[in-house]
Design a protein around this nucleic acid. Structure first.
Lengths: 105, 105
DNA sequence: TACTTGCGTAAGTAGCAACTAACGTAATCA
DNA sequence: TGATTACGTTAGTTGCTACTTACGCAAGTA
């Protein structure tokens, strides 16, 4: 989870995920969305995203096409969601223990 | 959103959020959960979290008590969720435009 | 008042991470 | 075969960031 957090914590990588969310894009197409940095920088970001499991790579001739592994990002989503659900569980546990208290009254 | 992402992208800060999610804790209590780093390091993390708007501070004597600003974290949750909803919207737009196509056939 | 507690802050450092420039490489095409 | 395209990778640099140490400061306490 730490790896996932760190990977998405970089704004450009987050933007890349958004770019290839529903469209399969080649590395150069992705890089063209970031005119302020070199293609090499984007290639390295793609490497980080790939190793984190957030991006899938498919080869087509000399091109490399990327898509999002939505399941991996879903883990992050579930992690964020868990902040809310755990507090609900705490409330439920509290309710249960007070029920037990009543039983012993 | 970049600030929010960067703030949460640091594992210790993420853990701090979890700690004070449902319990109001003093700085020293939070620091005691991280025996491997100094209290100062945690204090600086608390500063980052506070400036990002993720934590609320309340003073009680010499102590400073922290709680999570859940609304701010909800923004991050909404951002992550938006990855899925925007793709749904794209499908909806696609469906609408193909409806228009049918009308012009 | 002096001392202690509980904290933030400033200064300085070490390590990492994002970047550029240069190079290597597989696939394609002339 | 040589040239080109579309990439990744390596080496080296710079800047940031998480950290420690030292200090400052307000609020209690003897």
């Amino acid at each position: 989870m730490d790896t996932l957090l760190r990977t998405v914590g970089e704004p450009r990588r987050c933007e890349i995920i958004r770019l290839v969310w529903s469209d399969e894009l080649a590395a150069a197409e992705i890089a063209s969305h970031f005119p302020d940095v070199t293609r090499s920088a984007i290639s390295q970001h793609l490497g980080v995203l790939r190793r984190s499991g957030l991006l899938n790579e498919r080869r087509d001739g000399t091109r490399r096409l990327y898509t999002v592994n939505q399941g991996e990002l879903a883990k992050l989503k579930a992690f964020i969601d868990s902040f809310w659900t755990t507090s609900l569980e705490k409330l439920r546990d509290l309710a249960e223990s007070s029920e037990q208290m009543k039983g012993h009254e």
